[in-house]
């Protein structure tokens, strides 16, 4: 099993990244760090997808008519273009919310925010 995992090292990297991102979202309290964590999670997924479509001997899938070549799988690439836009959108919205929260509390630390809230009441 270890050999199989190592042979699939790009996937393993994706898994490690995913775990790092996941942990960041759950354990970090700074809002911006959470957003970064989400980005890492998404990037890990992109890496996973792209790696799954890759071929060692493949060339980018831009077909020159009449030239025979091995191309990498274009579908994961196309999907991840979409995925990247999704990731950008989520990040943008999350940042907007973070900006708004910063405007309210002057801090990006949720623990501090919770303190401020109880203090205000």
């Amino acid at each position: 099993m270890l050999l199989r995992v190592l042979a699939n090292y790009p996937y393993l990297v994706a898994v490690v990244l995913f775990a790092i991102g996941f942990y960041t979202v759950l354990a970090r309290s700074n809002l911006i760090k959470k957003i970064i964590g989400i980005n890492i999670v998404q990037s890990a997924t992109f890496l996973f997808f792209i790696a799954s479509g890759n071929l060692r001997s493949g060339t980018p899938p831009i077909v020159e008519p009449g030239v025979a070549a091995t191309y990498v799988n274009p579908l994961p690439t196309a999907l991840m273009l979409t995925g990247i836009v999704v990731s950008v959108s989520v990040t943008a919205f999350a940042l907007a919310l973070a900006v708004k929260l910063y405007g309210y509390y002057g801090t990006l630390d949720p623990d501090r925010i919770a303190q401020l809230r109880t203090h205000r009441q």
Partner: peptide
Amino acid sequence: VAEMPTYG
């Protein structure tokens, strides 16, 4: 991952 087809 261990079960997936070999990378590349």
